[in-house]
Design a binder for these strands. Structure first.
Length: 432
RNA sequence: GGAGGGGUGGCCGAGCGGCUGAAGGCGCAGCAUUGGAAAUGCUGUAUACGGGAAACUGUAUCGAGGGUUCGAAUCCCUCCUCCUCCGCCA
């Protein structure tokens, strides 16, 4: 959410940012609503000030026994209160319309973000080279099923489309990846581990920006408490500090959290229907940071490099892309996507998304910090990034490290998490 | 599920119809004291939204919302949440 002051003072900038984002929102109503709001606030408060002045006079009159004078004042009060009520109703109407407008205005992209739609996304780095296969590489479904690691048919039976069951070494590989990622971010990157609730309330989803605009993407529980399954750990972890005033000396605060993520994937019918690419439930290790405004872009680079470190140690070729204005998420000011090479698709696919939200989420969730004792509270900048999406890492690993015989080589850094195992399938083990 | 007790400022904690934006303490900041520090003393120290160039000023806020009243942190109602005990249970 943007501040009313900010929008008022930067109306053209915000308007331009909506154009750049390919948004069809208009700000035509803003100036009028904003002015009306401020006028009504003034009028209401003027009358309330009068009320506050008269009230103690009545007490004094009653004490000194001047009943009729007190009654006259009471009548005056009644009239004032009626006026206030009418003005207040008007103000509430205006404020509601203003809120409805402001709450759906997306964040203003950072100046370094290229304008344009998806096709304007900018590749900024490439690591590793797609492997040249001397055989026809299989996709992860074929590999996973053959290795008895993946069962999509039975998952469909028990839950429906877009669900998967991992089995045997498939399940163990998922667990190994989670632990590998967590340990890396904890031990070498200095994050604090959090295991948050997987179910959250509407206020939390509003805080990070999923509500009110994107409710259709969420799984909502039906038990009348208004709870939702988390679509990402970003929601519970960022909201950990909702409504809090943080000590500036403790910033930056860095959390890493493993959670499953639940997404309805409404509107993605027909896309990525095969395999593990797009699921209703998937595991993710998420990095979340709270930083001072002047440090947040350095933090974004840092956080992104932490996600990259996972890909590098798993020897997975990837590229880093700056999302263009039109492809940017609602709450983000700048986002790097990390895209891993998938041999079966002959293309790079998103495996991590690292964003700086600046004060957009902090304003919605009321997360502030005090720079030093006595200083005025300021909104923090919030950031997060996948480090990484575990399901997609699982499938990228199978596809990139597959051998001609259908076995899969495990990169050395992951072997300790699989009891030293260097290879999935193949060799004497599978021929037995 | 049953019974009871709480939610007040950065933190702890008093207040239980007007004199309370709120005692006291802690923390923090400034000053004094000191060779320096500790200790001590004095002073200051909430947020949001309006108005104002500024000094300053108005309004609101004691978990949230509603009600009673001329007037509510204080009384009433609803909800949220935390704690204790009993029951059930991974």
């Amino acid at each position: 959410m943007l501040g009313l002051d900010f929008i008022r003072q930067n109306l053209e900038l915000v308007r331009q940012s909506l154009v750049n984002r390919r948004s069809d929102l208009t700000l035509d109503a803003f100036a009028e609503l904003d002015a009306a709001r401020r006028r009504l606030i003034g009028e209401v408060e003027q009358r309330k000030a009068l009320l506050n002045r008269i009230s103690p006079q009545i007490g004094a009159l009653l004490k000194s026994g001047q009943q009729s004078a007190a009654d006259a004042k009471r009548a005056e009060m009644r009239q004032l209160k009626a006026d206030i009520e009418a003005l207040e109703a008007e103000r509430e109407g205006v404020e509601r319309r203003l809120q409805e407008l402001v709450r759906v205005i997306p964040n203003v992209p950072h100046a370094s973000v290229p304008p344009g739609d998806e096709s304007a996304n900018q590749e900024v780095a490439r690591w590793g080279a797609p492997r040249a296969f001397d055989f026809e590489p299989k996709d992860h479904v074929e590999l996973g099923v053959a290795l008895d690691m993946l069962d999509l048919d039975r998952a469909a039976k028990i839950s429906g489309a877009r669900f998967a069951a991992l089995k045997g070494l498939g399940a163990k590989l998922e667990r190994a990846l989670i632990n590998f990622m967590l340990d890396l971010h904890l031990g070498e990157h200095g994050y604090v581990e959090v295991l948050p609730p997987f179910i959250v309330n509407a206020d939390s989803l509003f805080g990070t920006g999923q509500l009110p605009k994107f409710e259709q993407d969420l799984f909502k529980l039906t038990d009348e408490r208004g709870l939702y399954l988390i679509p990402t750990a970003e929601v519970p972890v960022t909201n950990l500090h909702r409504g809090e005033l943080l000590d500036g000396a403790r910033l930056p605060i860095r959390y890493v959290a493993y959670t499953p993520c639940f997404r309805s994937e409404a509107g993605s019918y027909g896309r990525d229907t095969r395999g593990l690419i797009r699921q209703h439930q998937f595991d993710k290790v998420e990095l979340v940071a709270f930083a001072k405004p002047e440090e947040s872009y350095a933090e974004l680079e840092r956080l992104t490099s932490h996600a990259e470190a996972v890909l590098q140690r798993l020897e997975l070729p990837y590229r880093k892309v700056t999302l263009a204005t039109g492809d940017l998420g609602f709450a983000s000011a700048k986002t790097y996507d990390l895209e891993v090479w998938l041999p079966s698709q002959g293309t790079y696919r998103e495996i991590s998304s690292c964003s700086n939200f600046e004060a957009f989420q902090a304003r919605r969730a009321d997360i502030r910090f005090r720079r030093e004792p006595g200083a005025k509270p300021e909104f923090v900048h919030t950031l997060n990034g996948s480090g990484l999406a575990v399901g997609r890492t699982w499938l990228a690993l199978l596809e990139n490290h597959q051998q001609a015989d259908g076995s899969v080589t495990i990169p050395p850094s992951l072997r300790p998490y699989l009891g030293g195992l260097a290879q999935l399938g193949g060799g004497p083990r599978s021929s037995a």
